[in-house]
Design a protein around this nucleic acid. Structure first.
Lengths: 214, 214
DNA sequence: TGTACATCAGTGAACGCGCGTTCACTGATGTAC
DNA sequence: TGTACATCAGTGAACGCGCGTTCACTGATGTAC
Protein backbone atom coordinates (compact mmCIF):
# COMPACT_ATOMS: atom_id res chain seq x y z
CA UNK A 1 0.00 0.00 0.00
CA UNK A 2 1.67 3.28 -1.06
CA UNK A 3 1.69 6.34 1.18
CA UNK A 4 0.85 8.83 -1.56
CA UNK A 5 -0.21 11.80 0.56
CA UNK A 6 3.27 12.04 2.05
CA UNK A 7 4.57 14.34 -0.65
CA UNK A 8 8.26 14.17 0.19
CA UNK A 9 9.71 14.11 -3.34
CA UNK A 10 11.52 10.82 -2.83
CA UNK A 11 14.10 9.65 -5.35
CA UNK A 12 12.22 8.16 -8.20
CA UNK A 13 12.35 4.84 -9.88
CA UNK A 14 10.12 3.37 -12.53
CA UNK A 15 7.74 5.16 -14.83
CA UNK A 16 7.37 8.89 -14.31
CA UNK A 17 4.08 10.17 -13.02
CA UNK A 18 2.07 12.16 -15.53
CA UNK A 19 -0.27 13.32 -12.83
CA UNK A 20 0.09 13.81 -9.09
CA UNK A 21 -2.08 14.08 -5.99
CA UNK A 22 -2.13 17.83 -6.41
CA UNK A 23 -3.71 17.51 -9.85
CA UNK A 24 -6.42 15.31 -8.42
CA UNK A 25 -7.12 17.83 -5.67
CA UNK A 26 -7.44 20.53 -8.30
CA UNK A 27 -9.79 18.39 -10.37
CA UNK A 28 -11.93 17.72 -7.29
CA UNK A 29 -12.00 21.41 -6.40
CA UNK A 30 -13.13 22.25 -9.91
CA UNK A 31 -15.91 19.72 -9.70
CA UNK A 32 -17.35 20.71 -6.34
CA UNK A 33 -17.64 24.30 -7.49
CA UNK A 34 -19.47 26.65 -5.18
CA UNK A 35 -22.52 24.50 -4.64
CA UNK A 36 -21.69 20.83 -4.44
CA UNK A 37 -20.53 18.92 -1.40
CA UNK A 38 -17.39 16.84 -1.58
CA UNK A 39 -19.37 13.91 -0.32
CA UNK A 40 -21.21 13.78 -3.63
CA UNK A 41 -18.03 13.42 -5.65
CA UNK A 42 -17.49 10.01 -7.15
CA UNK A 43 -14.10 8.50 -7.71
CA UNK A 44 -14.82 8.01 -11.37
CA UNK A 45 -15.88 11.61 -11.74
CA UNK A 46 -12.68 12.98 -10.26
CA UNK A 47 -10.59 10.59 -12.35
CA UNK A 48 -12.47 11.66 -15.46
CA UNK A 49 -11.90 15.33 -14.71
CA UNK A 50 -8.21 14.70 -14.11
CA UNK A 51 -7.95 12.73 -17.34
CA UNK A 52 -6.95 9.35 -15.93
CA UNK A 53 -8.61 5.95 -15.80
CA UNK A 54 -10.78 5.32 -12.74
CA UNK A 55 -8.49 2.70 -11.31
CA UNK A 56 -5.45 4.98 -11.60
CA UNK A 57 -6.99 7.00 -8.80
CA UNK A 58 -5.78 4.39 -6.33
CA UNK A 59 -2.17 5.25 -7.13
CA UNK A 60 -2.69 8.57 -5.38
CA UNK A 61 -5.28 8.14 -2.66
CA UNK A 62 -6.62 5.21 -0.75
CA UNK A 63 -10.17 6.36 -1.51
CA UNK A 64 -12.30 9.42 -2.08
CA UNK A 65 -12.45 10.22 1.61
CA UNK A 66 -8.70 10.54 1.85
CA UNK A 67 -8.77 13.01 -1.02
CA UNK A 68 -11.58 14.96 0.63
CA UNK A 69 -9.68 15.33 3.87
CA UNK A 70 -6.59 16.52 2.00
CA UNK A 71 -8.74 19.07 0.19
CA UNK A 72 -10.24 20.39 3.41
CA UNK A 73 -6.80 20.81 4.90
CA UNK A 74 -5.63 22.67 1.86
CA UNK A 75 -8.68 24.94 1.97
CA UNK A 76 -8.20 25.76 5.64
CA UNK A 77 -4.56 26.62 5.20
CA UNK A 78 -5.21 28.82 2.19
CA UNK A 79 -7.98 30.69 3.99
CA UNK A 80 -5.96 31.32 7.10
CA UNK A 81 -3.24 32.92 5.02
CA UNK A 82 -5.80 35.22 3.43
CA UNK A 83 -7.36 36.28 6.71
CA UNK A 84 -4.00 36.73 8.39
CA UNK A 85 -2.89 39.07 5.64
CA UNK A 86 -6.14 40.98 5.88
CA UNK A 87 -5.65 41.50 9.60
CA UNK A 88 -2.09 42.69 9.21
CA UNK A 89 -2.98 45.03 6.42
CA UNK A 90 -5.94 46.41 8.35
CA UNK A 91 -3.98 47.08 11.52
CA UNK A 92 -2.59 50.33 10.15
CA UNK A 93 -5.56 51.33 8.08
CA UNK A 94 -9.01 51.06 9.54
CA UNK A 95 -11.22 48.81 11.62
CA UNK A 96 -9.72 45.36 11.95
CA UNK A 97 -13.14 43.84 12.44
CA UNK A 98 -14.68 45.43 9.41
CA UNK A 99 -11.88 44.66 7.01
CA UNK A 100 -11.41 41.08 8.22
CA UNK A 101 -15.08 40.35 7.78
CA UNK A 102 -14.98 42.08 4.42
CA UNK A 103 -12.12 39.96 3.14
CA UNK A 104 -13.83 36.84 4.41
CA UNK A 105 -17.11 37.48 2.63
CA UNK A 106 -15.38 38.68 -0.50
CA UNK A 107 -13.74 35.29 -0.73
CA UNK A 108 -17.16 33.99 -1.72
CA UNK A 109 -16.92 35.93 -4.95
CA UNK A 110 -13.46 34.82 -6.02
CA UNK A 111 -12.99 31.84 -8.26
CA UNK A 112 -11.48 29.87 -5.41
CA UNK A 113 -13.85 27.51 -3.72
CA UNK A 114 -11.86 27.06 -0.55
CA UNK A 115 -14.26 28.98 1.59
CA UNK A 116 -17.35 27.33 0.18
CA UNK A 117 -15.74 24.06 0.94
CA UNK A 118 -15.10 24.72 4.60
CA UNK A 119 -18.51 26.30 5.04
CA UNK A 120 -20.22 23.28 3.60
CA UNK A 121 -18.41 20.22 4.80
CA UNK A 122 -18.41 20.99 8.50
CA UNK A 123 -21.74 19.45 9.23
CA UNK A 124 -22.00 16.65 6.77
CA UNK A 125 -20.14 13.68 5.42
CA UNK A 126 -17.96 11.12 7.10
CA UNK A 127 -16.54 11.59 10.56
CA UNK A 128 -13.11 12.05 9.01
CA UNK A 129 -14.41 15.07 7.10
CA UNK A 130 -15.99 16.74 10.03
CA UNK A 131 -12.91 16.18 12.10
CA UNK A 132 -10.78 17.76 9.38
CA UNK A 133 -13.02 20.82 9.26
CA UNK A 134 -13.12 21.12 13.05
CA UNK A 135 -9.34 21.09 13.08
CA UNK A 136 -9.19 23.96 10.62
CA UNK A 137 -11.70 25.95 12.64
CA UNK A 138 -9.59 25.43 15.74
CA UNK A 139 -6.59 26.91 13.97
CA UNK A 140 -8.68 29.94 13.11
CA UNK A 141 -9.82 30.27 16.69
CA UNK A 142 -6.32 30.04 18.07
CA UNK A 143 -4.94 32.68 15.78
CA UNK A 144 -7.88 34.96 16.45
CA UNK A 145 -7.54 34.44 20.20
CA UNK A 146 -3.91 35.56 20.16
CA UNK A 147 -4.88 38.62 18.13
CA UNK A 148 -7.73 39.52 20.44
CA UNK A 149 -5.54 39.37 23.53
CA UNK A 150 -2.88 41.46 21.87
CA UNK A 151 -5.43 44.02 20.75
CA UNK A 152 -6.99 44.21 24.20
CA UNK A 153 -3.59 44.89 25.77
CA UNK A 154 -2.81 47.46 23.13
CA UNK A 155 -6.01 49.38 23.70
CA UNK A 156 -6.03 48.81 27.43
CA UNK A 157 -9.53 47.30 27.36
CA UNK A 158 -10.26 44.18 29.33
CA UNK A 159 -11.23 40.89 27.76
CA UNK A 160 -13.27 38.15 29.39
CA UNK A 161 -12.64 34.56 28.28
CA UNK A 162 -10.79 35.43 25.07
CA UNK A 163 -10.97 31.77 24.04
CA UNK A 164 -14.77 31.88 24.02
CA UNK A 165 -14.75 35.22 22.24
CA UNK A 166 -12.56 33.77 19.51
CA UNK A 167 -14.73 30.69 19.22
CA UNK A 168 -17.96 32.69 19.10
CA UNK A 169 -16.65 35.03 16.43
CA UNK A 170 -15.25 32.23 14.31
CA UNK A 171 -18.39 30.11 14.45
CA UNK A 172 -20.65 33.07 13.85
CA UNK A 173 -18.70 34.32 10.86
CA UNK A 174 -18.57 30.89 9.32
CA UNK A 175 -22.26 30.26 9.95
CA UNK A 176 -23.41 33.56 8.50
CA UNK A 177 -20.91 33.21 5.68
CA UNK A 178 -22.43 29.85 4.94
CA UNK A 179 -25.88 31.30 4.35
CA UNK A 180 -24.43 34.24 2.45
CA UNK A 181 -22.99 31.76 -0.02
CA UNK A 182 -26.33 31.40 -1.73
CA UNK A 183 -27.23 35.07 -1.77
CA UNK A 184 -26.61 37.31 -4.76
CA UNK A 185 -23.39 39.31 -4.64
CA UNK A 186 -25.39 42.51 -4.29
CA UNK A 187 -26.38 41.41 -0.80
CA UNK A 188 -22.81 40.92 0.34
CA UNK A 189 -22.31 44.52 1.37
CA UNK A 190 -25.26 44.27 3.73
CA UNK A 191 -24.02 40.96 5.12
CA UNK A 192 -20.59 42.48 5.76
CA UNK A 193 -22.12 45.39 7.66
CA UNK A 194 -24.31 43.14 9.72
CA UNK A 195 -21.55 40.69 10.49
CA UNK A 196 -19.21 43.49 11.53
CA UNK A 197 -21.87 44.79 13.90
CA UNK A 198 -22.41 41.33 15.36
CA UNK A 199 -18.69 40.85 15.93
CA UNK A 200 -18.45 44.27 17.57
CA UNK A 201 -21.31 43.31 19.87
CA UNK A 202 -19.37 40.30 21.04
CA UNK A 203 -16.26 42.37 21.60
CA UNK A 204 -18.16 45.09 23.45
CA UNK A 205 -19.76 42.37 25.52
CA UNK A 206 -16.53 40.76 26.59
CA UNK A 207 -15.10 44.16 27.48
CA UNK A 208 -18.14 44.97 29.57
CA UNK A 209 -17.94 41.62 31.33
CA UNK A 210 -14.24 42.10 32.04
CA UNK A 211 -14.93 45.54 33.47
CA UNK A 212 -17.65 44.18 35.74
CA UNK A 213 -15.46 41.46 37.14
CA UNK A 214 -12.60 43.74 38.21
CA UNK B 1 -50.26 14.47 -10.59
CA UNK B 2 -51.56 14.17 -7.01
CA UNK B 3 -50.91 16.84 -4.43
CA UNK B 4 -50.05 14.45 -1.61
CA UNK B 5 -48.39 16.84 0.84
CA UNK B 6 -51.61 18.76 1.21
CA UNK B 7 -52.90 16.64 4.06
CA UNK B 8 -56.47 17.86 4.06
CA UNK B 9 -58.30 14.57 4.71
CA UNK B 10 -60.40 14.84 1.59
CA UNK B 11 -63.39 12.51 1.11
CA UNK B 12 -62.00 9.23 -0.04
CA UNK B 13 -62.72 7.06 -2.98
CA UNK B 14 -60.96 3.93 -4.14
CA UNK B 15 -58.66 1.66 -2.22
CA UNK B 16 -57.82 2.76 1.29
CA UNK B 17 -54.25 3.82 1.98
CA UNK B 18 -52.29 1.46 4.19
CA UNK B 19 -49.54 3.99 4.59
CA UNK B 20 -49.43 7.78 4.41
CA UNK B 21 -46.95 10.59 3.90
CA UNK B 22 -46.47 10.82 7.63
CA UNK B 23 -45.32 7.20 7.78
CA UNK B 24 -42.78 7.88 5.10
CA UNK B 25 -41.48 10.90 7.00
CA UNK B 26 -41.10 8.76 10.09
CA UNK B 27 -39.27 6.09 8.15
CA UNK B 28 -36.90 8.70 6.70
CA UNK B 29 -36.29 10.20 10.13
CA UNK B 30 -35.44 6.77 11.50
CA UNK B 31 -32.99 6.18 8.70
CA UNK B 32 -31.10 9.45 8.88
CA UNK B 33 -30.47 8.90 12.57
CA UNK B 34 -28.16 11.34 14.26
CA UNK B 35 -25.33 11.11 11.76
CA UNK B 36 -26.59 10.80 8.21
CA UNK B 37 -27.64 13.56 5.90
CA UNK B 38 -31.03 13.44 4.22
CA UNK B 39 -29.30 13.93 0.92
CA UNK B 40 -27.84 10.44 1.22
CA UNK B 41 -31.25 8.81 1.57
CA UNK B 42 -32.36 6.82 -1.44
CA UNK B 43 -35.96 6.44 -2.47
CA UNK B 44 -35.68 2.67 -2.33
CA UNK B 45 -34.24 2.80 1.14
CA UNK B 46 -37.08 4.89 2.51
CA UNK B 47 -39.65 2.71 0.79
CA UNK B 48 -38.00 -0.41 2.23
CA UNK B 49 -38.02 1.06 5.73
CA UNK B 50 -41.67 1.99 5.39
CA UNK B 51 -42.53 -1.46 4.06
CA UNK B 52 -43.78 -0.53 0.62
CA UNK B 53 -42.56 -1.21 -2.91
CA UNK B 54 -40.16 1.41 -4.29
CA UNK B 55 -42.59 2.63 -6.90
CA UNK B 56 -45.33 3.13 -4.32
CA UNK B 57 -43.26 6.01 -3.01
CA UNK B 58 -44.53 8.12 -5.89
CA UNK B 59 -48.05 7.95 -4.53
CA UNK B 60 -46.97 10.18 -1.65
CA UNK B 61 -44.15 12.43 -2.83
CA UNK B 62 -43.00 13.62 -6.20
CA UNK B 63 -39.44 12.65 -5.29
CA UNK B 64 -37.01 12.32 -2.40
CA UNK B 65 -36.38 16.05 -2.31
CA UNK B 66 -40.01 16.81 -1.67
CA UNK B 67 -39.94 14.43 1.28
CA UNK B 68 -36.75 16.03 2.58
CA UNK B 69 -38.24 19.49 2.54
CA UNK B 70 -41.33 18.26 4.37
CA UNK B 71 -39.08 16.66 6.97
CA UNK B 72 -37.10 19.84 7.52
CA UNK B 73 -40.29 21.81 8.02
CA UNK B 74 -41.53 19.29 10.52
CA UNK B 75 -38.24 19.41 12.39
CA UNK B 76 -38.19 23.20 12.58
CA UNK B 77 -41.73 23.37 13.88
CA UNK B 78 -41.11 20.72 16.51
CA UNK B 79 -37.98 22.45 17.73
CA UNK B 80 -39.55 25.85 17.97
CA UNK B 81 -42.23 24.43 20.19
CA UNK B 82 -39.61 22.96 22.47
CA UNK B 83 -37.57 26.14 22.74
CA UNK B 84 -40.64 28.30 23.23
CA UNK B 85 -41.74 26.15 26.12
CA UNK B 86 -38.26 26.30 27.60
CA UNK B 87 -38.29 30.08 27.49
CA UNK B 88 -41.70 30.35 29.08
CA UNK B 89 -40.81 27.90 31.80
CA UNK B 90 -37.52 29.68 32.49
CA UNK B 91 -39.04 33.13 32.78
CA UNK B 92 -40.16 32.53 36.30
CA UNK B 93 -37.33 30.29 37.38
CA UNK B 94 -33.80 31.24 36.50
CA UNK B 95 -31.68 32.61 33.68
CA UNK B 96 -33.56 32.52 30.40
CA UNK B 97 -30.31 32.32 28.50
CA UNK B 98 -28.91 29.43 30.44
CA UNK B 99 -32.02 27.29 30.41
CA UNK B 100 -32.82 27.91 26.76
CA UNK B 101 -29.34 26.90 25.73
CA UNK B 102 -29.59 23.93 28.04
CA UNK B 103 -32.80 22.67 26.51
CA UNK B 104 -31.37 23.16 23.06
CA UNK B 105 -28.24 21.12 23.66
CA UNK B 106 -30.14 18.49 25.59
CA UNK B 107 -32.20 17.89 22.47
CA UNK B 108 -29.10 16.27 21.04
CA UNK B 109 -29.44 13.48 23.56
CA UNK B 110 -33.08 12.67 23.02
CA UNK B 111 -34.17 10.04 20.59
CA UNK B 112 -35.61 12.68 18.31
CA UNK B 113 -33.40 13.61 15.42
CA UNK B 114 -35.07 16.88 14.59
CA UNK B 115 -32.23 19.02 15.83
CA UNK B 116 -29.56 16.96 14.15
CA UNK B 117 -31.48 17.34 10.98
CA UNK B 118 -31.64 21.11 11.03
CA UNK B 119 -28.04 21.40 12.12
CA UNK B 120 -26.87 19.26 9.27
CA UNK B 121 -28.91 20.13 6.24
CA UNK B 122 -28.44 23.87 6.30
CA UNK B 123 -25.26 23.90 4.30
CA UNK B 124 -25.61 20.97 2.01
CA UNK B 125 -28.00 19.39 -0.41
CA UNK B 126 -30.25 20.89 -3.00
CA UNK B 127 -31.23 24.53 -3.04
CA UNK B 128 -34.71 23.53 -1.95
CA UNK B 129 -33.24 22.00 1.22
CA UNK B 130 -31.18 24.96 2.16
CA UNK B 131 -34.07 27.28 1.53
CA UNK B 132 -36.25 25.16 3.80
CA UNK B 133 -33.68 25.29 6.59
CA UNK B 134 -33.15 29.02 6.17
CA UNK B 135 -36.88 29.53 6.53
CA UNK B 136 -36.92 27.64 9.80
CA UNK B 137 -33.96 29.63 11.13
CA UNK B 138 -35.80 32.84 10.25
CA UNK B 139 -38.75 31.74 12.33
CA UNK B 140 -36.40 31.15 15.24
CA UNK B 141 -34.86 34.56 14.77
CA UNK B 142 -38.19 36.31 14.66
CA UNK B 143 -39.48 34.70 17.83
CA UNK B 144 -36.20 35.38 19.61
CA UNK B 145 -36.21 38.99 18.46
CA UNK B 146 -39.65 39.60 19.95
CA UNK B 147 -38.53 38.03 23.20
CA UNK B 148 -35.36 40.09 23.36
CA UNK B 149 -37.21 43.35 22.87
CA UNK B 150 -39.75 42.41 25.51
CA UNK B 151 -37.00 41.43 27.95
CA UNK B 152 -35.09 44.65 27.34
CA UNK B 153 -38.18 46.72 28.06
CA UNK B 154 -38.89 44.67 31.16
CA UNK B 155 -35.42 45.15 32.57
CA UNK B 156 -35.08 48.71 31.32
CA UNK B 157 -31.85 47.97 29.49
CA UNK B 158 -31.30 49.26 25.96
CA UNK B 159 -30.97 47.03 22.96
CA UNK B 160 -29.12 47.91 19.78
CA UNK B 161 -30.32 46.29 16.53
CA UNK B 162 -32.36 43.51 18.16
CA UNK B 163 -32.76 41.87 14.76
CA UNK B 164 -29.02 41.37 14.48
CA UNK B 165 -28.80 40.21 18.06
CA UNK B 166 -31.42 37.56 17.39
CA UNK B 167 -29.70 36.49 14.20
CA UNK B 168 -26.28 36.31 15.83
CA UNK B 169 -27.56 34.27 18.76
CA UNK B 170 -29.52 31.89 16.56
CA UNK B 171 -26.68 31.26 14.14
CA UNK B 172 -24.15 30.90 16.91
CA UNK B 173 -26.21 28.43 18.89
CA UNK B 174 -26.94 26.35 15.82
CA UNK B 175 -23.31 26.40 14.71
CA UNK B 176 -21.91 25.42 18.08
CA UNK B 177 -24.71 22.90 18.52
CA UNK B 178 -23.71 21.42 15.21
CA UNK B 179 -20.21 20.64 16.38
CA UNK B 180 -21.46 19.48 19.77
CA UNK B 181 -23.45 16.83 17.94
CA UNK B 182 -20.39 14.67 17.54
CA UNK B 183 -19.05 15.15 21.05
CA UNK B 184 -19.69 12.68 23.86
CA UNK B 185 -22.59 13.55 26.13
CA UNK B 186 -20.17 14.19 28.98
CA UNK B 187 -18.97 17.30 27.15
CA UNK B 188 -22.43 18.77 26.84
CA UNK B 189 -22.34 20.44 30.23
CA UNK B 190 -19.22 22.34 29.23
CA UNK B 191 -20.72 23.30 25.87
CA UNK B 192 -23.84 24.61 27.59
CA UNK B 193 -21.76 26.76 29.93
CA UNK B 194 -19.68 28.12 27.12
CA UNK B 195 -22.64 28.80 24.88
CA UNK B 196 -24.47 30.59 27.67
CA UNK B 197 -21.43 32.80 28.23
CA UNK B 198 -21.20 33.56 24.51
CA UNK B 199 -24.85 34.51 24.34
CA UNK B 200 -24.47 36.74 27.38
CA UNK B 201 -21.54 38.46 25.71
CA UNK B 202 -23.70 39.32 22.76
CA UNK B 203 -26.45 40.63 25.02
CA UNK B 204 -24.06 42.66 27.12
CA UNK B 205 -22.58 44.00 23.91
CA UNK B 206 -25.87 45.19 22.49
CA UNK B 207 -26.75 46.81 25.79
CA UNK B 208 -23.42 48.62 25.86
CA UNK B 209 -23.86 49.80 22.30
CA UNK B 210 -27.37 51.02 23.03
CA UNK B 211 -26.09 52.93 26.06
CA UNK B 212 -23.34 54.58 24.01
CA UNK B 213 -25.74 55.75 21.34
CA UNK B 214 -28.11 57.54 23.69
C1' DT C 1 28.42 2.70 -24.05
C1' DG C 2 25.23 -1.43 -23.90
C1' DT C 3 22.30 -4.72 -21.81
C1' DA C 4 19.39 -7.01 -18.50
C1' DC C 5 16.38 -6.05 -15.02
C1' DA C 6 13.40 -3.90 -11.29
C1' DT C 7 10.15 -0.44 -10.49
C1' DC C 8 5.74 1.39 -10.76
C1' DA C 9 2.18 4.92 -12.99
C1' DG C 10 -1.35 4.18 -15.81
C1' DT C 11 -4.71 0.93 -18.50
C1' DG C 12 -8.93 -1.83 -20.47
C1' DA C 13 -12.15 -5.02 -19.44
C1' DA C 14 -15.03 -6.93 -16.41
C1' DC C 15 -17.70 -7.79 -12.01
C1' DG C 16 -21.73 -7.21 -9.17
C1' DC C 17 -24.60 -3.66 -6.94
C1' DG C 18 -28.10 -0.31 -5.73
C1' DC C 19 -30.20 3.17 -7.82
C1' DG C 20 -34.52 6.03 -10.03
C1' DT C 21 -38.06 5.35 -13.01
C1' DT C 22 -41.46 3.02 -16.26
C1' DC C 23 -44.98 -0.12 -17.32
C1' DA C 24 -49.08 -2.70 -17.25
C1' DC C 25 -51.32 -4.92 -13.52
C1' DT C 26 -54.35 -6.11 -9.22
C1' DG C 27 -57.70 -5.79 -6.19
C1' DA C 28 -59.92 -3.31 -2.26
C1' DT C 29 -63.05 0.30 -1.54
C1' DG C 30 -66.70 3.60 -2.33
C1' DT C 31 -70.63 5.29 -5.41
C1' DA C 32 -74.66 5.35 -8.59
C1' DC C 33 -78.64 3.24 -9.82
C1' DT D 1 -80.41 -5.22 -1.09
C1' DG D 2 -77.76 -6.16 -5.41
C1' DT D 3 -74.97 -5.02 -9.28
C1' DA D 4 -72.01 -2.53 -12.38
C1' DC D 5 -68.53 0.64 -12.34
C1' DA D 6 -64.95 4.28 -11.20
C1' DT D 7 -61.23 5.22 -8.27
C1' DC D 8 -56.70 4.70 -6.87
C1' DA D 9 -52.99 2.70 -3.36
C1' DG D 10 -49.92 -0.64 -3.91
C1' DT D 11 -47.26 -4.26 -6.94
C1' DG D 12 -43.64 -7.20 -9.69
C1' DA D 13 -40.76 -7.11 -13.33
C1' DA D 14 -37.81 -4.84 -16.05
C1' DC D 15 -34.79 -1.02 -17.96
C1' DG D 16 -30.48 1.35 -18.32
C1' DC D 17 -26.98 3.79 -15.56
C1' DG D 18 -22.99 5.11 -12.86
C1' DC D 19 -20.72 3.40 -9.29
C1' DG D 20 -16.30 1.20 -6.55
C1' DT D 21 -13.18 -2.25 -7.04
C1' DT D 22 -10.46 -6.24 -9.06
C1' DC D 23 -7.48 -8.25 -12.32
C1' DA D 24 -3.74 -9.10 -15.28
C1' DC D 25 -1.45 -6.12 -18.35
C1' DT D 26 1.82 -2.51 -20.64
C1' DG D 27 5.47 0.14 -21.25
C1' DA D 28 8.34 4.13 -19.78
C1' DT D 29 11.98 5.09 -16.73
C1' DG D 30 15.93 4.46 -13.73
C1' DT D 31 19.72 1.28 -11.93
C1' DA D 32 23.38 -2.30 -11.75
C1' DC D 33 26.90 -4.28 -14.00
Amino acid sequence: MPKPTAVTPRPHQGRRATINSEDLLTAALTLVGPHRSISTLSLREVAREAGIAPNSFYRHFRDIDELAVALIEKAGTALRVIIREARLRAAQERSVVRSSVEVFIQQLQTGENYLHLLLREGTVGSDAFKEAVEKQLHYFEEELCVDLVRLAELKGTGIHRPDLVARAITRLVFAVGGSAMDLPVSEHERIIDELATMVRMIIRGTQAMAAEQD
